[in-house]
């Protein structure tokens, strides 16, 4: 096999890895969306699908890791190729965690539905929209190798964090005024916490994209390197 054929073979493998990672991202996004629909529409069947349907994402998690290990062992990649694979390993973990968080949201939503609603849901769906947009943008940035798009994801994390604080303060008020709202309020606080974590994982993905494209490690120094 010539060097050129070897490189092409390796590039094909990298493309397949990218496609599998995007499939993983699609599944993770879908599960968050379904869990949120279950919550906002009171759709128990949707919540059940999320709670019991973790297998596909778990299988992909293992498959993608396996692909990465084989690519590292067989091709000993360097520079951008090495960074692409190391980033894929990390993004894979983040997406798997997003899938787990969707399950946590669905479980909390299922519990919440057994209580009298505390209040109309406004900020939590807004958080969910932002967190899902962050995740989608981070994955788009991965596909397009787009640094500015990844940078925008990092900047949006603050919005989700601010909403989580707002939700917490508001529900704390309800709980202090009326103890019968405690159980339901706690479930909503947990859901907002899970959404905030999804935003964090999207941020991680965006940081990995920046590392993959530019070889710069921007973790823990977002303030100085804001885009």
């Amino acid at each position: 096999m010539t060097t050129e054929q070897n490189v092409r073979h390796f590039q094909d493998e990298l493309e397949q890895l990218k496609a599998r990672l995007l499939a993983m991202g699609g599944l993770a996004e879908d599960r968050v969306r379904t869990a949120m629909r279950g919550l906002t529409e009171g759709d128990q069947a949707a919540l059940d699908r999320v709670i019991t349907g973790d297998d596909a994402i778990n299988q992909l998690h293992v498959e993608i890791d396996d692909r990465c290990v084989k690519l590292l062992a067989l091709h000993q990649p360097m520079a951008i190729d090495l960074r692409a694979i190391v980033s894929a390993v990390k993004i894979n973990n983040d997406l798997e965690r997003v899938g787990d968080l969707a399950v946590n949201i669905a479980e909390a939503a299922a519990r919440y539905m057994t209580h009298v609603p505390v209040k109309p849901l406004i900020d939590i769906p807004r958080m969910a929209v932002i967190a899902q947009e962050m995740l989608r943008d981070a994955l788009d940035a991965y596909v397009r190798r787009d640094l500015s798009m990844a940078g925008n994801v990092l900047n949006r994390d603050d919005e989700v964090d601010a909403l989580k604080t707002l939700v917490f303060k508001e529900l704390l008020g309800y709980m202090q005024r009326d103890k019968t709202t405690v159980a339901a309020s706690l479930d909503l606080i947990l859901i907002s916490r899970h959404l905030e974590r999804i935003g964090d994982h999207a941020t991680n993905v965006a940081e990995d994209v920046i590392f993959m494209v530019s070889a710069r490690d921007v973790r823990h120094q977002v303030e100085e390197s804001k885009f």
């Binding site: 490189v7 390796f10 990649p77 360097m78 520079a79 951008i80 530019s214 710069r216």
Partner: peptide, 19 residues
């Protein structure tokens, strides 16, 4: 040099895209 070379030429060479 092997994780994040500065030059495109270096990157192309060490990733086997030419040479």
């Amino acid at each position: 040099m092997f994780t994040g070379p500065r030059e495109k030429l270096t990157e192309d060479y060490i990733t086997g895209r030419f040479g």
